[in-house]
Structures are given as C-alpha cells and as structure tokens.
Design a protein around this nucleic acid. Structure first.
Length: 858
RNA sequence: GGGCGCGUAGCUCAGUUGGUUAGAGCAAUUGCCUUACAAGCAAUAGGUCAGGGGUUCGAGUCCCUUCGCGCCCACCA
C-alpha cells in the first residue's frame, strides 16, 4: 500500500490485443525475472523445470502443467524469494533421432565415414532414407534441435512463463554431457555402476536394449499350441505354448513342485519334438498348475519368467533370436543331429512371425502338434516407443544400481520418497509401488547414436578382442569426451580398432541417465560451485504423473548417490490433459491440440486461467469454455481497473488512514481474509484455491461493492467520498498483485496505468496490513448490504424493469439490520431508493420489502 | 492378483479438521442500452451428494459394504 497520490494513465478502450508481445519485450529488457545470485540459499526458491522434448511439438498439456509451475514461481518471487527458474530442452535420444530421420530423410549408418560436405536431400523421401555417418547424423540433430528450441522458447515467452532465459540447458549440450559423464564415472568408481553381460529386454526395431521403466503391456492376439514332448520310452508329455517358434531354444520343461501329475517326471529328461534335444524336467514354484497343462517349456528366452527359471535352475543357454529379431544362422548347442540341423536351417533368417509359421508346419509334419491352436489375446511387453514385441537377447550392458537387487538400497530409496513432500500426497504411493516392484538394476546403455556416450574405452588384446574388464577412463577434466572420435590417454587415433590398440564404448546413455541429473546440470554442480550452493538441493520438482517411475525416481537415485540428499524437497505432480471427450491426450491417439491457436484466440492469460483452474494431480479436460471465462475475467480486470481509476480521479491516494466508512472497512476486512487464504493456499501448492478465492472476491467487488460506493466516491467534497476512493485504490492494488501469478499480462497492463515498475516485482500483499487498514471493519456489513442490494435488483428484475428504475421505499427487517444500516446512503444510491427503514427482529434471515415507484411501474 | 484415485445440478468442478437451508461457472430461461464493461448486467429455474448399512445430537464429509469409471503395478506357458 502506498500513500502517494496517483495520476492515472488508462486508455479509453482497454484491450487484450497485442498485450503479450508488448509485455514480453518489456520483461525481457528489464530482466524482471532474472535470478539474483547474490542471495543465499534460504532466500532462494529453485525449480527443477522439466525439460520438454523438443523433437515433438508442444501441446496443450505442456501449457497446463508449466502454467501451474509459473504461478508458483511468480508467487514465490513476490513473496520475497529470489526465484531460480531455469529451462531445459530435452533434445537427446530416440525421439530426436526419429524426427531427424523423417525431417531430413536420412538414417544413421555408423560404418560410413564422415562427410563434411554433406547436404541433406532437398525433398526427403521417407521410403528411401539416405545413409549418413554418425557424425553427420549428430550434426543434423544439433541443427534441428536448435531450431526447435527457438520455437519452444517463443511459445513459452508468449505464454508468460517467468523463466530466467539466461539459465537454459539442453540435455545434449557440453554441460549436460559433461555432467552425465562425470556422474557416471563417480558411480563407477563407487561401484554404483557396473557392466554385465546378461539377458536383456531388446527392441528389434530400434535394435537397442531398453529398461524396465520403459516397458508397457499391450493386448495382442496369440494362440495356445499344444505340443508333444517325448519321454525316453516314447510316451508324450503335452505342453502348451504361445511361442512355438522358440522350440529350438527350449532348455527344459517346468512344473510346480506340488503338481501331482508331474512328480514322476521331475529329475528325468524328455526330448523336444522336431529337434530331438534332450532337456530336463524341473520343478519351480513359479510354474502355475492352472495354466495350460500345468507344465511349460522354458526357452532362452521367451519372457522374463524364462530368465528367472534359467537363472535359478541354472539351465543351458540356447539363444536363437538375434539383434535384428531374426533367427540366427548358427544353431544352438544340442541341435547337432542331421534332422535337427535341417529343421533349424529352414528357420534361419526368418522373423519371429515367419519362424512361428514354419515351426508349426514342422510340428504338424512330425505329428507333434495336438489339435488346432486355440486363439487367445494376452498382454505382451513392448518398448513404449516401439511397435514390435520385445525379445530377450543376451548382451553386454551398463547398469546403475537402483535397489532392484539390493534390499538395503531399496529401503534407502523408499525412505527418500517418504522424506519428499508430494503434491498431491497420494502420488507417493506410486513411487513406493514402483520401487518396491523393481526386479533388476537400471539398464542405462542404449545401442543408439544421438545421446551422451559412455566415457569409456577398452584396450584390445593381441587378437583385437576388447578387454572389457580393464576399461580405460578419462579424467574428469577431460569431460565431455566422445570415445568414438577421441583417443584415450596413452593411445593415438590410428590405434583405434587395431590389435593392441583400443576401441571406444559404442553405446550412448539412456536419456533418463542424463535428465536424472537435471538438478545438478541446472544448478552448476562441479561447474559453478557458488551457484550450486545457492540453489541446491532445489525446492520444487514439477512433473507429470507418468514419469514418476522414470524421471522422478532416477533423479532421486542419482542425488542419493552423488549428494547424499534428496534433489529437492517438494514434488508437484500434474494430472493428464483429456480431450473434450475425456480421453487422454496423446500423440498416438492423434487427439493432441497445439496451443498457439488457442493462445491467439483467447489470449495467453485466458489460457493460463483455464490451466490454473486445474489442480495438481487431477486430470483436466481441455475446455475452451473455461478459456472464454478467463478471457472475460481478463477484460473485466481491465475495465474494472479503468473504472476505479476514473472514479478515484487523478490525485487520489490509496491511503488507508482515509478509510473511515463501515462499508469500506468491511470490504477491506474481507480482502484481508482473501489475502490470508490465497497466501496459505500458494504456500501449500494449491494454486486453484488461491485463484478461486481471489476471483470470487473480485466479482463481488465489481458487482456489489463498486456499485454501492460509486456515487459516494464521485463526491470529492466529503470525508465519506475520500474513504470510498481510498478503499477502492487499496483494494485495486491488492487485486492486481493477487491476480499477477495467474494473468501476468493483464495484471502488468493495469498496474502500469498507475504505478511504476513491474507488478511482478512487487511484494506479495500482506494480510496484516489490510487488516490494520480495515480497523473495526466487519465483513458481515458488506455481506448484509450486498444482500439488500440484491433484493432490490430482484424486485426490479421480476417487475421486468431497468436497474435504473426508481424505488419508493425499502424496508429491511431481521437480526442483521444493524449491519446494513451502516450503509444506508450507499444502498439508497445504488438501488435508487427514495426511502429506507430498518426494523430489528429475531429473524436470522434478512427480509427486504421493496416498493417500486408508481412511475417506474407505469 | 495388488495398489491408488474418482463418482455432488444437463456439462465442468468447489465444498479446508463433521455444524444453519449443499455452492460456483458454463449451458438453459426471463429481462435490462445501467455515465467501466452488450464479448456486458440483473434475475430465475435446476441436486435423494452413485446404492445400501453404520457411528453421531448432527454425515456430501468418518467407518463398513455393493456398483460403476479411470490410472499404476504384477513372473501374462
């Protein structure tokens, strides 16, 4: 509040047109959102912004959740914190590779040498992608992501995000690569990262390993095939399988140890049909007597249960599926017989699908397929971005421990989840659910091109074979390194790939292996220690509920290892955006809505209003109706502000000492409550409540208070008039600030009509100051007065009269008449009533009898 | 199979530790040029709070149960 008298500079016709461009530029020049890095940790509010994937287009869901975060950032800034609000771009990984392939019509072929003169095809032909070297491919990725990032930044600015644009990062930039490699080397040194050759979930399309967190189930049609195995005496043992093509990979049969039907088989062997391989029959608790015939074939590897059986029962290994998803050329051990070879050779090179058909033919021919396959549908594991079922292939991969095979670590990480403050609280259950259900460590290596390479080389022995157990590591000051183009210390580039030379680790890190370090990347960990100490551990991690198991969990894992703390103290989890039919909006459903047209149609503030009406953790439908409401609110703020200023007139002051009238004090008392409520709501990350309370007050302020006092306020010759004018301005200032986090453009616009500087740099309203200004004011006075006014309006409306119609007399009775009596003059003026009298009765309801004037009724 | 969330007016949603007669916006209806705003304003109508049971002086709110919807997880032969 200020006692300074004002001159008002409001336009005749306030408008939302062009308001975004105007203030985006002003904010950029004034640096109002710049982080003040002289402030110490306790005065800082730091946000670990989710880096959006720049390879896709921004959709309205981003606008939704980023607006939530921005309201928090703006509140905290006005609440006196130095807000560290950086922006990252996730330009690393498969989505970028795909977009580059489609955009330029190329594909990466690491065997091709670099061509510095390369120019992508003028007209990309998706069916004939031009092969390019890895380096050329990465250059194209860099070029395109830089373009994408510009577009994203422009949209974010238009939306009014109060990001400090001097603090941006990209998940593939030098800082991010260096940070990811440094953290990895430290994980390795402490034994938290390790290499292992093991069965791995494998996507045959992308030809890369994938992690447990990236799986999803999809219902697929399949069929049970009843197949006869044979005991040594020739009697058949029937199993049922949905994957007959893996018959050649069969290493055992398994049944439940308590299954009476198979007791005499345990410990014996049977022969596979067609291939005639002798395999043991074993007992294991995971075999389900209820499924099929109760006895199953174990293959290397049909699913993750096979892996468990294979490991726990220490079975043979007979892999038959290669990295390309086709049957490999060499038959596994045990298929040495001529007939087995011949059968196997007919499968070599076939896809899984074709191999299945051929194996079924072979089984039919040998008479070992019993009856016809029974069609079913069942869930099959897919890589979330893939479109072919995952296979399980044994490969050498890097892992980071995550508690998946270590009870102590798991408990430690669950405890971290309990330490974290979640909004909404119930999202914590998803975290615990996930961590509790992990069945292996985090597989972080990917056999892809565009990503952060592992900072590792391997010496080659005299035969040119890599010695994986003696990796060569760079020192931290060499980071970031690219082992595929730089030689390790002590070697020269011409020794690459030669006997007694070296090779670079060919893999790149999982995108989460980098983005899990976003707090360290953004905070300047090991790069800008001064900054790091001011902002880390961070305050707030906003993110989607779908990536609790990936981004959130992985970030907790990394900070736990590296910093021994939580990466932030609070997580705010957004809900989904649903399309107007309440279906989840997603690219694959094709129902994604891009934001620009909506921002232009309704204004940024209007779209923000819609977004801010959705609470954390709650799914929200895309609702243009709410945007219309937001637009109406924005226009109302413009008009009401203009009106208050014109009523108050130049030279008026927002001086609380001049507020003497009971009705004016009542309004300020109500305002104090609103400020208290909104402040508490923001502190609890409940932005919807803060908005709701502010909005409710504002509409009542316009509809009732403003109408009641405007006549009095025009009276420049009295103390009563001065009281109204001062109260109007005090409330207006508070409203501008309360609305600033939600509708920053309009709030800045109206603020600029009467104040210096940015509203976004102002101190958040202080409830105590309004309470003091309200003095003995009682909100009941405003409520009772408004009730009388409403009754007068109702009478006019029911008589189908103009609101301007004259009222002869108003009689108010009830318990609360004294509250309304204090505003007799205002009621008479606003209601155009010639006379009012009040009668105190015991009735708790306020009764208002309105006698309309003869003239009006005529 | 395990876990989480949800079910309040035609639609979208509030309803803070149990407390007058369950609220708002949109849509609908009836009106109104009213010296900020007709992209406005005023007013009206609209609900067995999913069903059943219980605790309580009192339940939309707490407990049990049934039904429906959504999401997450699960070793899915």
């Amino acid at each position: 509040m200020t006692n300074r008298s004002h001159s008002f500079r409001m336009p005749d016709k306030p408008s939302l047109d062009g308001i975004e461009a105007k203030w985006v530029d002003v904010w950029d020049e004034s640096g109002v959102y710049h982080f003040d890095r002289t402030r110490s940790r306790e005065d800082v509010f730091s946000i670990d912004t989710p880096p959006p994937t720049v390879s896709g287009s921004l959709h309205i869901g981003h606008v939704f959740s980023y607006t939530h975060t921005d309201t928090v950032a703006r509140f905290q800034r006005m609440n006196g914190k130095a807000v560290f609000y950086p922006m990252g771009w996730d330009d690393n990984g498969l989505p970028t590779e795909r977009r580059v392939q489609n955009y330029y019509g190329v594909r990466c072929d690491p065997s091709i040498p670099y061509d510095p003169e390369f120019v992508p095809p003028a007209k990309p032909d998706p069916k004939r992608q031009v092969p390019v070297s890895r380096r050329n491919f990465i250059e194209l990725c860099d070029t395109l992501t830089a373009e994408d990032e510009k577009v994203f930044e422009s949209i974010w600015r238009t939306l009014g995000l109060s990001v400090d644009w001097r603090h941006t990062y990209a998940t593939i930039d030098d800082n991010s690569r260096g940070t990811a490699q440094r953290a990895f080397l430290r994980n390795l040194a402490r034994g938290e990262a390790y290499m292992s050759e093991a069965p791995t979930l494998w996507d045959v399309t992308f030809r890369t390993a994938v992690a447990q967190a990236e799986l999803e189930d999809r219902e697929r049609p399949s069929a049970y095939h009843k197949v006869a195995f044979h005991k040594p005496d020739g009697t058949p043992v029937h199993i049922e399988t949905t994957r007959p093509e893996l018959l050649a990979a069969c290493v055992a049969l398994v049944a439940h140890p308590d299954d009476e039907r198979y007791q005499d088989l345990f410990g014996t062997t049977v022969r596979t049909p067609v291939f005639g391989v002798e395999v043991p029959v074993r007992a294991h608790r995971l075999a389900d007597p209820e499924k099929g015939s109760g006895i199953a074939m174990i293959c290397t590897f049909g699913d993750t249960t096979d892996v468990t059986w294979w490991r726990e029962l220490q079975l043979e290994t007979r892999p038959i599926i290669g990295w390309d998803g086709r049957i490999i050329a060499d038959p596994p051990r045990g298929l040495e017989s001529g007939a087995a070879r011949e059968a196997y050779d007919s499968l070599v090179g076939a896809t899984v699908h074709t191999a299945r058909e051929r194996t079924v033919e072979l089984l039919r021919a040998s008479g070992d397929l019993v009856g016809d396959p029974k069609a079913i549908t069942h869930p099959v594991k897919f890589y979330e971005k893939g479109d072919k079922p995952l296979e399980i292939v044994t490969t050498r991969q890097w892992y980071i421990r995550n508690g998946g095979r270590d009870e102590d670590l798991r408990e430690q990480l669950i405890a971290r989840g309990r330490e974290l403050s979640w909004h909404p609280e119930h999202m914590r259950a998803r975290y615990e659910n996930w961590v509790g259900g992990l069945n292996g460590d985090w597989l972080v290596s990917r056999q892809r091109f565009f990503g952060v390479p592992f900072p590792v080389w391997y010496p080659l022995d005299a035969d040119g074979n890599p010695r994986y157990d003696e990796p060569i590591l760079p020192s931290e000051d060499q980071l970031p390194v690219d082992p595929s183009s730089e030689a390790p210390a002590g070697y020269t580039e011409d020794q690459r790939g030669r006997a007694d030379g070296f090779m670079g680790d060919p893999d790149v890190m999982d995108t989460w292996a980098t983005s899990s370090l976003s707090p360290q990347i953004a905070s300047g960990w090991e790069r800008d220690q001064d900054l790091f100490e001011r902002v880390f551990p961070m305050d707030y991690r906003p993110q989607g509920q779908d990536i609790i198991r990936t981004w959130l969990f992985a970030t907790v894992v990394r900070a736990n290892f590296e910093n021994g703390t939580l990466p932030w103290n609070t997580a705010g989890i957004s809900g989904w955006i649903l399309d107007p039919d309440r279906k989840k909006m997603s690219k694959s459903k094709g129902n994604v809505v891009t934001p620009l047209a909506l921002l232009e149609k309704y204004s940024s503030d209007a779209v923000r209003y819609w977004a801010a009406s959705g609470r954390l953790g709650t799914d929200t439908a895309l609702d243009e109706g709410q945007m219309k409401v937001g637009r109406r609110l924005s226009i109302k703020i413009l008009n009401a502000s203009k009106f208050v200023m014109s009523v108050a007139g130049d030279g008026a002051t927002a001086d609380p000492a001049q507020v003497t009238e009971p009705l004016d004090r009542a309004m300020l008392a109500a305002l104090a409550e609103v400020v208290e409520d909104a402040t508490a709501a923001f502190a609890a990350y409940d932005h919807t409540r803060a908005l709701e309370r502010t909005e409710r007050f504002f509409w009542d302020f316009c509809d009732d208070y403003l109408e009641l006092v405007k006549t009095r306020a025009y009276d420049t010759g009295s103390a009563e008039g001065a009281s109204a004018r001062a109260a109007l301005l005090v409330a207006l200032g508070a409203l501008h600030k309360l609305f600033a986090p939600f509708v920053p453009f309009v709030a800045e616009e109206v603020w600029s009509w009467w104040q210096e500087g940015s509203v976004h740099a102002q101190a958040w309203p202080d409830a105590a100051a309004y309470r003091a200004a309200a003095a003995d004011g009682d909100p009941v006075v405003l409520a009772a007065t408004a009730e009388v006014l409403r009754a007068i309006r109702k009478a006019k409306s029911e008589a189908k009269l103009s609101m301007r119609a004259e009222v002869e007399h108003v009689r108010v009775s009830g318990k609360r008449v004294e509250s309304a009596r204090a505003a007799t003059g205002d009621i008479a003026a606003a209601g155009r009533a010639a006379g009012i009298d009040f009668q105190a009765t015991d009735d708790t309801d306020l009764t208002v009898e309105v006698t309309l004037s003869e003239a009006s009724e005529g």
